[in-house]
Design a protein around this nucleic acid. Structure first.
Lengths: 243, 243
DNA sequence: TCACATTTGTCCGTATGTATC
DNA sequence: AGATACATACGGACAAATGTG
């Protein structure tokens, strides 16, 4: 028993489906349920928790929206544990950004300032593994471009790897959620190979400057130009995302 | 009709309850549904959308978790539109916090760097209204302290007002979501009048320095000390938030 | 305090759609 | 192509909570 009752979640007024989703979350946090693991089908979950199917379904909706599971239909389907919940935060940000009437310009400015801060910490704290991961990323992106396919995932991943190199998980979460938003927005534009290639080139230059550990100022300039081009691309989006 | 078909959300594989929640979201974004407005009861929603009640309930779960509505039980109850969805992001961050094994230390460092960046923009872009709002905030907090009650909401609000003064909504959303997480964590600690008062004093000093427009360096130092004390308070939290 | 109406919360039975074998 | 196993969705029923008279 803890000294104070500070670690108990409120039970009063807790609905059954909240109880169920909380229990499953707990198993995930404890590591009993790992990414890729399959949960039993709804009917068996209902039996095991001794609740109705509707209750299970509402619990699954919560877990799904929170990003903990993905539900597959059909034979051999059912709820599967996902590997990250960060993308889900991004979609909530998308709603928040819509409600706060955020402009592409504000997004670009904020992203530039935050990522500028991040590359400072990245060069300070990155280890060999980080540089390898970043190099492999631009290499993979380059190969995709040469195969005439766009490298959206790799280009997004590049910025996540930078954030990871700071060794601060908060930056990683913040950048990941902003990037999830960005990916949402970019996915609404028609794919463009040239734009994708330009991004890869920017990343290559940026990485070179960062690794030289002397060209931080130049790296900042490359970052600014890179984000500006993304911004221009975003400008062609319609104002309202919800039709 | 738009030039490209980029503004259509995917309909493929869209489940009915997603369709319903999307429609209601749309009404909120359009302003047809404003905060405080009541949605019809589940059964009538089911009739209006011509779907079953189960479908409506799953749609409501999504809207609830996303922070768009709050559901009240009993007579005169039903779904009510909320005024902000930002707080909801905090609880998702709480999950990410657990999943990504974020430490109090990382949180403090990240918050300091981001808020440092924010006060730079705040002094640059704040107008008279912002300074008035900030002054009124510390005044209200001071009065609460003198009445021997803690000023948690005011102290959280102070940092939101700073972010608002940057005139960049992205910073506001980012800071709001981090603060929502912070509030979640602090609410798990027993209230402490002295700590709350110390925070108010810090805010007063910080504001004075910012308004003098000369003491930015000093303001940064005050901010650092202030966040450090919040950090020390958070250290007493148990490791696992989920019991 | 006591009914009473309203609305959410929960369960069950059944039917349909869908992906895999 | 057909059978299987699963999610999805509908309708009806009752319990529990909540505000009203």
């Amino acid at each position: 028993m803890a000294k104070h009752s500070i670690l108990f979640s409120p039970v009063k007024g807790r609905r059954t489906f909240e109880e169920v989703s909380h229990e499953i979350k707990k198993l995930i946090f404890q590591g009993s349920l790992k990414p890729g693991d399959k949960l039993p089908p709804e009917l068996e979950l209902a039996n095991q928790f001794n609740v109705g199917r509707q209750t299970i379904r509402e619990a699954l909706r919560i877990l799904e929206l929170s990003g903990f599971i993905k539900v597959h239909k059909g034979f051999g389907g059912g709820p599967v544990i996902k590997d990250t919940i960060l993308n889900q935060i991004g979609s909530l940000y998308l709603d928040a950004f819509q409600m706060e009437k955020i402009t592409i310009d504000e997004l670009t400015v904020a992203r530039y300032k935050i990522e500028k801060m991040i590359i400072q910490d990245a060069v300070a704290f990155a280890d060999e593994d980080d540089w390898v991961a970043l190099s492999e990323n631009v290499e993979a992106a380059r190969k995709k471009i040469e195969a005439k396919t766009i490298a959206l995932e790799e280009n997004i991943e590049f910025h996540k790897l930078l954030a990871k190199a700071t060794k601060n998980h908060v930056f990683f979460v913040l950048v990941s959620s902003i990037l999830a938003l960005l990916q949402e927005l970019l996915s609404r534009l028609p794919p463009d190979l040239k734009v994708s290639e330009a991004a890869v080139v920017s990343h290559e230059k940026l990485l070179t400057e960062l690794m030289s550990k002397k060209g931080r100022k130049k790296a900042e300039r490359i970052l600014a130009e890179h984000l500006e081009s993304v911004k221009n691309r975003l400008q062609s989006l319609p104002d309202k995302i919800y039709e």
